[in-house]
Amino acid sequence: MSNEPARAQVVDWWSAERARVSLELEERLPLLLIEVDKVIDEMPLKAFIRRGRFQTRQINPIVGKWIEAEYKRLSAEIDESFFADVIGPEEHKSHDGWSADELLTAGAATAFSIAPLAALPFVGGLLVSTGFLGLSATLAIIPASIVGAGLVALGLGPSIRGWARRKLRETFRARIRTNIRMRVLGEPERPEIASLKGTIFTELDGFLSKRLGELE
C-alpha cells in the first residue's frame, strides 16, 4: 500500500502542532509576565544594587517553574496527539503484548515526557543581565551606595528620587521581560539562545524525521 497519505498526515500533524505550540506560548506568556511583574513591583530599592542576585533568587525560580510546567503540559499533549493522529489505531497493536493505550497509561510510551528536564538548559537560570540596564548615563554612574538616600544627599528632591526609582524599576522590568520572552519564545536572529519553543520544536522535528524515516 502507498505510504504517501500517512506521510502527508504526519506532516499535517507536525505543522499543526508547531503552530499550536507557538500560539499557546504566545497566549500564555503574559500570565508569567504578570507573575514576575508582581515580584518586580515589590522589589526593594536596595535590591537594585545587586539586581543579578535578585533575579537569580527571586525571579528565575518562578520562570524556571513556569517553563518546566509548560514543557510538561505541552509534551504530554503532543504525546497524546501523536498517538491519536499519527500512529493511528492499527498501530495501537501490541508491542511485546502491550497496547499503546496501556503504554500510555503506564507512562512508558511518553517519548516526550521522559526527556530529562535537565535538557532544558534554561531551567537552571535565565540570562543574567550583566550590569547595564539601559539607564541613562547619569544614573548609571551613580554609585550604588547612594541610590535612594544618596539622591537626597546629592540635593535631588523627592520627586526626582521617585522618578529615578520608577525609571530604574521599569528599565529592570523591560530587561527581564525581554529575557523571559527570549527564553520562552526564542529569537530568530539569535538561534544560539535556547528557548522553550525552540526545544519543543526540536523535539517535534525529531518526531517528524523519525516517523518519515519509518514510512520510507
Binding site: M1, I87, A111, E214
Partner: peptide
C-alpha cells in the same frame, strides 16, 4: 483485497 495502510508500519520506536 487492499491491505491496511498501517499494517506494514513498524511500531513507533520508544526512546
Amino acid at each position: 483485497q487492499e491491505d491496511s495502510p498501517r499494517t506494514d508500519r513498524k511500531w513507533w520506536a520508544l526512546r
